[in-house]
Amino acid sequence: MSNAYLAYAAKRLAQAFIVILLAYVFTFVVVSILPGDPITNVLRDPQNGFTEDQIKQIIAAQGLDQPIPVQLWTSLSHFVTGDLGLSMRSNRPVTTLIAEVLPSTLILASAAFAIALLLALTIAYGTQFLPKRFGQGLLRGFPSLFLSVPNFVIGLVLIHVFGFQLGLFRVIAPDSFWATFFAAVALSIPVSARIAEVLIANLDKEAEQEYAAVARGRGLTQTRLFSKHLLKPSSLPVVTVIALAIGELLGGSLITETVFGRTGIGSLVQRSVSTQDLPVLQAVVSLAAVVFVLVNLIADLIYPLLDPRVKLIGGRGRRPTTTDDSATATTAAVTS
């Protein structure tokens, strides 16, 4: 690993850290300036039965009478050390609440991601090598089809067919293997469509390149040509798409968890929103920011490893070359 790459990685890592902190500050500020005071609402709820003195004590103990910047600083310093505070509803640490539901969502999201990749690769491979008469055109229509069907419809259809008709899984046991599998399938379909779309377009482009013909002339089989030559350059733009698709997985898991009756981050968010449990919401939003930033960081770190032509910031620059693009500019300069 070259020094240039390490310098690049360190810089990206620092940037990622700053972005996460900024995201936390942003949500904190937004929550603070929102109208309505959920904390007072909770404390003054007659069911809780706090007296005025108790309320004052709690507010002072939590530091909620401090100015916003001081509160932000306290909260941020806790966040950095991993302390996300207590849930206002259950009085349990937010980290515990999240830790309880996170595995279920992680399993669902990673299964969905794996299925999405597999599906996208299969479709893309098929569009390159399936003979026209065996439905290559149909395959090319898949991504648009996948994108145009809403996530929950796919979920409902899967539950109906595989749950009720075929009895592969029981709807009341959402954590069983098959239930998880079909939830992941439902979640993966729109994500796979995005990946497949970009992959197909790039495979088509790369297959036309001269080097593909030359490699074929070297006696490579179709499969080797695909895996050794076309896949890597075609997946460069896909890396970026995947980083964006993770966002879709997060958002989609909320709906899928509801449709399949799973507990997970989605259901936690749903509950916290309806009860205005601010510390939980703040934590989940920050978590989403962390996931997003990490995924994009990974994408940024992988990219230069996949494409040796990428010029690294902080690395050695390549000499500029005169290209034909300058032609029009040169001619225009002389004319005007």
């Binding site: 001269e210 490699a215 002339g217 890597k232 350059p233």
Partner: peptide, 24 residues
């Protein structure tokens, strides 16, 4: 035909800059 490719019939292309995979 594939066994003949490369082994029996070699190919030298026109544009060297685009005839090798840039990422390998």
């Amino acid at each position: 035909f594939r066994p003949l490719r490369g082994r029996a019939i070699g190919f030298v292309p026109q544009d060297p800059a685009n005839s090798l995979n840039p990422v390998r």
